[in-house]
Each structure stands twice: as C-alpha cells, then as structure tokens.
C-alpha cells in the first residue's frame, strides 16, 4: 500500500523545550493509527504538524507526496486532502450547521452552493443529524457538534482524517455517539490518525497503536500486542494508570 504520511526524523521545539524528538512514522493509505500516551507527550503536536497547524523544526514531513515546507501553496494543497477534528469542535459559531459544512467546498473546491449543500446533507445523514442542518452550533449538544465537525471535514472528501482527542471535551454519555461515527468511518476504509484515550476504540479499530512519551515514539504495536504485552516499561506504566479503574 502507498504511504500517505511520512514523518522522518521530525523535531519540534517550543523555545528551548524539545517537544518532538526524532519522530519517525509512516502511515499507509487506509490505515487506522491510534496515538496515545501521557499528557504532554507530544501526541497533539505531532498530528498538528501533519497539516502544519504547527511548524516542525527539523526532519521531513511528506503528506500525499507533497513535502511540507514554507511553500503556502503546498500547505493549502495538503490541508485540502487532510481533514481534522478538534477536541473543542471549533465549529464556526456565526454560521448554521449547513453553512459550516458548505463553506470550504464552495470556497476551496469552487463547488456550486446547491451541489455543496447536497454533499453536506449526505454527510449530515451519515453522522445521523440531518434534521439539525439549519441550527447554529450553540443550539446543539457537544456530541452533535462533534459529529457536525466530522461531517464538515468529510465534505472536503479528504484522503486522511486527523482526530485530536475528539471525545475529551464531551460529557460521558455523548462519547459513544461520536466513537460510533468514527468506527463507521474506519470501516469504510478512511485513513485515520487518532489521538485518543479511548482504549476500547483503539482496541477495536486501530491497525497500529503508537505510544508516545516525552516527545518520543516509544513503541508502535498492534492493539493485540500493545494491550496484552507492551514492550516498554513506560507503556506498561501508562496502561496501568488508565486501565486501573
């Protein structure tokens, strides 16, 4: 399978703080990768580098054959093909759900409004909230907002979806409705990189689990290996902490 994301010896600094240390990771088309690790381990920073919401300071990032540099044109090209879902949803508050979904297809893909709306309704149906199309984000529950955010990213028909702790800001009873949508998406063959603490989701959906700590990738394993017999002491400690209760 073709590699859609290649990270090579990627480094990232915040001032003198070394946030990412020689990160190497290759993700194939169709693969589902879950990234986990303690807070401050660099998980979010790493996936935010993939669509250049953060700039890396060393090494190479190649997404869909385009290397990310200061070239704004290439950055825009990559961002069009990489959808992202944020912890805090980040729906545009002054636009209705439908306007949120059609904005980028109209402006970036130059789609006609009618066509963009048809696609928007298709994805809203897929995330099971077509009846909310004309509401504003503030009128929806957290779980609904996050499903809208997923639909918004899908409207651009991306090659890859990045999820940055998509359920961490949700009330417990809303987590499963979002994970269900993500699981459906995985079954349909979407390439996914998810930073999440939802180990049940990781176990059932991930092809590989990337465990990070202190800015490094400590281990990469299949879910079966990772949960049954983590290779590193740090992963064992981490799993002990999050699975204890």
């Amino acid at each position: 399978m073709a590699d859609i994301i290649v990270l090579e010896k990627m480094n990232k600094f915040y001032g003198t703080y070394h946030a990412l240390k020689d990160v190497n990771l290759t993700i194939a088309k169709g693969e589902k990768v879950v990234v986990c690790g303690p807070s401050g381990s660099g998980k979010s920073t790493m996936i935010r580098c993939i669509n250049r919401l953060e700039e890396h300071d060393g090494g190479r990032i190649v997404v869909g054959g385009e290397e990310l540099t200061d070239d704004e044109k290439k950055i825009d090209l990559v961002r069009r093909e990489v959808g992202m879902v944020f912890q805090s949803f980040n729906l545009f508050p002054h636009m209705t759900v439908l306007e949120n979904l059609t904005l980028a297809p109209r402006l970036v893909r130059k789609m006609a409004t009618v066509e963009a709306e048809a696609i928007a309704m298709k994805y809203l149906t897929r995330v099971r909230i077509p009846d909310q199309a004309h509401k504003y984000p503030s009128q929806l529950s957290g779980g609904q907002q996050q499903r809208v955010a997923i639909a918004r990213a899908l409207c651009m028909n991306p090659e890859v979806m990045l999820f940055d702790e998509p359920t961490s800001a949700l009330d417990p009873e809303m987590i499963s409705e979002v994970l269900d949508v993500m699981t459906d998406l995985a079954r349909e063959g979407m390439t996914m990189v998810c930073v999440t603490h939802e180990m049940g989701f990781a176990r059932s959906v991930a092809d590989r689990i990337v465990f990070m700590d202190q800015g490094e990738i400590v281990e990469v394993s299949t879910p079966a290996e990772f949960f049954a017999a983590p290779k590193s002491e740090r992963a064992r400690t981490f799993l002990g902490q999050i699975l204890a209760h």
């Binding site: 669509n51 250049r52 919401l53 704004e72 825009d76 961002r79 069009r80 990489v82 959808g83 992202m84 944020f86 805090s88 980040n90 729906l91 545009f92 508050p93 002054h94 904005l103 980028a104 402006l107 970036v108 955010a149 918004r152 990213a153 651009m156």
Partner: peptide, 25 residues
C-alpha cells in the same frame, strides 16, 4: 484561535479565513 485553525485545516486561504471567520467574529 480554534476557529482560525479549523479554517486552516479546511484549506481556506489567509484571505478567506480573514473575511469569512476572523472579521465577522
């Protein structure tokens, strides 16, 4: 900042982000 980042992630240009997201808000 999250709204602007969402605009970036969708591939909107700097001008589009400014006129459609930052300015109205």
């Amino acid at each position: 900042k999250g709204f602007v980042e969402a605009g970036k992630a969708l591939g909107l240009s700097k001008f589009q982000r400014t006129t459609r997201i930052t300015a109205p808000l």
